[in-house]
Amino acid sequence: MPMLEIKDLHASVGGREILKGISLAVNAGEVHAIMGPNGSGKSTLASVLAGRETYAVTGGQVLLNGVDILDMSPEERACEGLFMAFQYPVEIPGVSTAYFLKAAVNAIRKHRGEEELDAMDFLKLIKTKMKLLEMDQSFLNRSVNEGFSGGEKKRNEIFQMAVLDPKLGILDETDSGLDIDALKIVSKGVNSLRGPDRAMLVVTHYQRLLEYIVPDFVHVLRDGKIIKSGDKKLALELEAKGYGWLDTAA
């Protein structure tokens, strides 16, 4: 059974259909890249999987380890092991990163029937993960994403993924707004999270990220549908020929 199975997924916003029948299977241990031009529905797909309520799912199924998650709230999906790294991480003034993460970690642990972490164990957990993303200790007491640079925000997303230990990680345009150094740190963090029990869906416009996070499969989305799938060579081909190439290929 695939870890993630998307079957003929349709979704719309404001009556306009954005996803027009997407089917995709991702097995544990695999990294799939979703590429496509602007407006093809890449980010919509990520948001629909995470449960953003601005999109209406009009058809299809999304199975996570065989369980349909489309009727679940965003928090239930997170507890079931789904994580989305935001394209635009939200600033939350007044809520410290440490407080927020502890609430999240313990909500998920509770759902799994595990004991909640106390302050000491929690600190131990996040300190090892902070090292991974080369983050400064002071950031724990700062409000979530408030005043963070673009790179810090993206690093924070991957850091949260490392702490929350999801089964399925969805990276929504994680490379956008990153300089090369930040990109390397973020990619290193992501790669360290790859493993036989975890799957990842990497949504990106550019091939650049895939030099650092090498995918097992690449899918090209256009106008709400997957029009081409292949291995990592497909990304290079796209880079060389541009998305326009697919008009003739398709």
Binding site: A50, E53, S73, P74, E75, A78, P89, I92, F100, I108
Partner: peptide, 15 residues
């Protein structure tokens, strides 16, 4: 803010 709410919920925190 709906975005802030969604962000927190997407990390497992209930509504």
């Amino acid at each position: 803010d709906d975005e802030q709410l969604f962000y927190l919920r997407s990390r497992g925190v209930d509504a």
